[in-house]
Simulated scan of single mutants.
Amino acid sequence: MKKINFSVNSWVFGPISFEELAKRAKRIGLDGLELDGEPDTIDLVHMKKVLKETGLKAISVCGTFSMEERSFSHSDEMMRRNAIEYGKKLVDMALYMETDRILLVPSMVNRLTYYVDRQTDWNHSVESIREVAEYAKENNIKVMLECVNKYEVNLVYSANDGKQMAEEIGTGNVGLVTDTFHMNLEEKDGIANAIRSAGKEFIMHQHLGDNNREVPGMGCMNWKEIFMALRDIDFEGAVSFEPLPNRLTPEEISAGMLDPDELEQNMTKSIKMLNFIMELM
């Protein structure tokens, strides 16, 4: 199996400094970081300097889509315009941080009702993301749509949903971020079959979380089967840990309720387990 780069989403450790995050990532044995997509508030010069000093890669830039002014599917044209401009800022951040991909969520996170109806909201999202993707294509950046379970978003749940939207956007540089936790809830034929069905053409990145949303190995998912499926599609992207330990919410993690030492220890054990699985394949 080809070497897979391991990373972690930078928000997962909570309100620690970027230097501390980078040091923990190196101790765990990660290759890089998924960067929090807040270019208006983050010191990008400092972030790039820390990555260079630690030898970590910028794996991707991950947008945050839990506010209405970043909703691609919004019924209000001005809100959609705000979302499009934010998406373009993520492209600019990716260029500066020397990564070739950004993550978008097609609809607002934690909004389960439609602005109009499913088809209208879907069309708004396609049109809005298409403009971001065209700008990204001009700059050789890939756009990754994250497939999130139906209890958190209202449009793109499964890999098939993501494939459909990527095809309708039609720019040729749009693929998917699949997430094992969300897939466990949404993929009726199982995670491995969904990976094989979507294939290398669409799956650009893989998030990792066990069935209980802990790090891999702390739940009951079949990780050998999942990584065999990634091998079977000749997966060339990266995989990123994105757990919510101890049933904490993202808001609680951001407020500092997570024990970063415990997470570091669990993630270190997890990456050793996953590397062992890949060595046996």
Rank of each mutant, 00 (worst) to 15 (best):
F202H: 14
T113W: 03
M228Q: 14
D189E: 08
L56I: 08
E38R: 15
E279K: 14
V132L: 07
M204P: 00
D232M: 01
A166W: 08
M144N: 07
R231V: 00
F181H: 08
L44R: 11
D234A: 07
D40Y: 06
V109G: 00
T113Q: 03
N5G: 02
L274C: 05
E152A: 12
F227Y: 14
P216C: 08
K52W: 07
T268Y: 00
F6S: 06
Y114Q: 02
F202Y: 15
Q164C: 07
H182C: 04
S75N: 06
A238C: 11
V116D: 12
N246F: 09
K26S: 13
T249P: 01
S71C: 15
N123T: 12
E131K: 13
G172R: 05
S128E: 01
M257S: 10
G55Y: 14
I277N: 00
I277H: 02
F276M: 10
A238V: 13
M204Y: 14
V132C: 04
M67I: 14
L230M: 06
K188E: 08
D259C: 11
N149S: 13
L176W: 13
E69G: 01
D76W: 07
H74Y: 08
K269C: 00
E19R: 12
W223Y: 15
A94I: 12
L230T: 04
R24F: 09
F181I: 02
